[in-house]
Design a protein around this nucleic acid. Structure first.
Length: 608
RNA sequence: CGGGGUGUAGCGCAGCUUGGUUAGCGCGCUUGACUGGGGGUCAAGAGGUCGGGGGUUCGAAUCCCCCCACCCCGACCA
């Protein structure tokens, strides 16, 4: 997304750089990656000596990684501060009583790390800090005059992920920046929307400054509704998340949220293609296998999913069945919207069976067979022609399903059957924002997520204060997260080549690597000292490779660790009164630059 | 949680099918020599509870049982 990002110099002489020696650091590069590393960032961060695995989803951050994390953290802090937020630090250890109001330990379930202390009291390792900060605020803020406030921290988070994977991209312990804002109202000065917009801009600045190619996408709406949540996705083919974009309007959303333009609906009046014919299809795990067994392509099958409706909704139906084409996926959010209900859940298998649904073999006919059922038909599934479907009894599917013949009069009752959009958006779907434009898909790594919480937590925990009119009001909240360690990994996913990492200058652990061909040579030592002194004075961070290694080893390692600029001090260039200058992305051998010009050239390249 | 896979030296692997000297190889590491601008050569070394426990057997890295760890796919994921 493009916004008015201010171009910032990466370094300046206001703050000195640092100069470290390779021999005094711990940079254990390896020729080979561990066999269980498959993702580029995992392989390269390991091989280049940035990380080591301790356990599943648990990593050491070695000195180089620590410096990158600090650089990302510095950028985050600058932009958060500039956006009016203030840093604090909360504990990672959290007494379980804090969850009493929000019941989030139930939502998190096994993902929450639990531990008992010596007194037998239950504690959690915090997965995020809504409860902790709300608790803090309840004890510290008693007047509307103290709001708005936006507080943040950069801290280690813990989530017992069912499946940690891909190195730093999905960990059980990771570094996160989390911010929480507090307001008396949503609109206008000091309101939630203002803070949210400021965070949107700050995040855009942060990821731009980190040198990432990213997309801000609309994500699932919060309790307030509207476009209440955005995810910041690093564009990357290996990303876990699917995003969709409209090339004309710029609309972008994740697959859970993405709307589509109007798709053509069928009339539900077409004649049958043949007799209802049942086929024995036992023990087949998915629609693909069922299709194979029946000799039917998934796009000619109907997939019917059963949802239960919360009793509190007060609706005439307690079940919703949603029918989509076999090659499509039901979207729960769209089901809710089309049905006009706020809360649904995938049907409990036992309860659904008891009601008469043959789970795994459900057909749209259940709208008639099971009382209190609303049928939602996706537009793409509402056409005529041949359909195969579940046969409403265990181990059987059926061919030649026909809407009019097999569902009948219910189709004409809009209280029992609705046709609309209930599936996930796909590549090629019509854009919801620009007529004639089609959605394109991409993959992304979620590095940031901003969210309008509303009063979800303040209500649950009883955080309400008097406003100017002496009305007691629940405090309105927003929360804003950035995966700092994930951002580091995502950057490597985007910035590497066959030889190693290619850091963007703003988050590189050092800007310049000085490679001494003969580290014991006093002349090379002297020149390295002089150049590094000058560079440091300009705010540039320098690493000197002073190891007694062969040239080939040093060059290979230099490419691997990926610093933006390499200066080589060797006889060849020194005889010409210069040093060899090469940027990481430059594939050639570099150029000889007079010693007097080196600092200016580095500075220009780094800030360029 | 379901499916698949892997555990042998710091890293990458062979050996296991068909049990049998002292468990091998490459990289890395140590020492020495030669070398010296893209992971150099030669020589001599160090380094192992064969993931753990139990069992079968005269004898187990190898066969059997249980457990653990890690990876991949899926489910899940404020």
């Amino acid at each position: 997304m493009t916004t008015g990002t201010t171009k910032k110099a990466v370094v300046s002489s206001v703050r000195s750089g640092v100069c470290h020696r390779w021999s005094k650091s711990l940079i254990p590069t390896t020729r080979e990656a561990p066999n269980d590393a498959e993702t580029p960032s995992h392989i390269l961060l390991h091989r280049a000596g940035y990380i080591r695995q301790v356990g599943a989803g648990i990593y050491d951050y070695l000195p180089l990684a620590h410096r990158v994390l600090n650089k990302v953290g510095d950028i985050v802090r600058e932009e958060m501060d500039a956006a009016g937020a203030t840093e604090l630090l909360m504990p990672a250890l959290e007494p379980f009583e804090l969850f009493e109001g929000t019941k989030r330990h139930e939502d998190y379930g096994a993902n929450l790390f639990r531990l008992e202390d010596r007194k037998g009291r239950l504690n959690a390792l915090a997965p995020t800090h809504e409860e902790v900060i709300t608790h803090l605020m309840m004890g510290s803020v008693s007047s509307y005059k103290q709001l708005p406030l936006n507080l943040y921290q950069v801290q280690t988070k813990f989530r017992d992920e069912a499946r940690p994977r891909a190195g730093l991209l999905r960990c059980r312990e990771f570094i996160m920046k989390d911010a929480y804002s507090f307001h008396m109202h949503v609109e206008g000065p000091g309101g939630l929307n203002e803070a949210y917009d400021a965070m949107y801009r700050a995040y855009t600045n942060i990821f731009t400054r980190c040198g990432l190619d990213f997309t801000a996408v609309e994500a699932e709406s919060g309790p307030i509704g509207g476009s209440a949540s955005h995810e910041f996705m690093v564009n990357c083919a290996s990303g876990e998340d699917t995003i969709l974009k409209c090339p004309v309007s710029g609309y972008a959303a994740n697959v859970e949220k993405c709307e589509t333009g109007e798709r053509p609906k069928g009339t539900l009046q077409e004649p049958p293609t043949g007799e209802w014919t049942e086929v024995h299809t036992p023990n087949l795990p998915g629609i693909t296998e069922v299709g194979k067994a029946m000799g039917v392509k998934p796009e000619r099958m109907l997939k019917t999913i059963v949802f239960s409706v919360d009793e509190g909704e007060g609706k005439s139906f307690k079940w919703i069945i949603a029918t989509v084409r076999g090659d499509h996926d039901v979207n729960e959010g769209k089901v809710k919207t089309l049905a006009g209900v706020k809360k649904i859940a995938m049907a409990d298998e036992k309860a659904a069976r008891a009601a008469g649904f043959a789970i795994g073999y459900v057909s749209p006919k259940c709208v008639n067979a099971v009382p209190g059922t609303l049928l939602l038909i996706d537009a793409d599934a509402s056409h005529g022609g041949f359909w195969a479907t579940g046969a409403d009894k265990a181990d059987y599917h059926a061919k030649h399903f026909n809407w009019r013949r097999d569902v009948g009069a219910a189709l004409d009752d809009s209280g029992r059957v609705k046709v609309g959009d209930v599936r996930n958006a796909l590549e090629g779907d019509p854009s919801p924002r620009a007529a004639g434009s089609k959605l394109v898909t991409g993959r992304g790594i979620e590095v940031g997520h901003i969210f309008k919480l509303g009063t979800k937590y303040s209500d649950a925990m009883g955080f309400a204060i008097l406003d100017a009119t002496q009305q007691k009001k629940s405090v309105i909240m927003g929360c804003y997260g950035i995966g700092v360690s994930r951002t580091m990994a995502a950057s490597v996913e985007q910035n590497n080549d066959a030889n190693g990492i290619c850091w963007p200058a703003p988050i590189a652990p050092y800007h310049v690597l000085i490679t001494l061909m003969k580290p014991e040579d006093p002349k090379q030592q002297e020149i390295a000292g002089k150049i590094s002194c000058e560079l440091v004075g300009k705010g540039i961070d320098v690493l000197i490779d002073d190891r007694d290694e062969r040239a080939g080893v040093k060059f290979k390692d230099a490419d691997l660790i990926g610093l933006p600029i390499r200066l080589t001090l060797g006889d060849k260039a020194l005889e010409q009164g210069g040093v060899e200058y090469k940027t990481r992305r430059d594939t050639g051998k570099g150029e000889v630059v007079p010693i007097a010009d080196v600092t200016a050239k580095c500075l220009a390249a780094i800030n360029g």
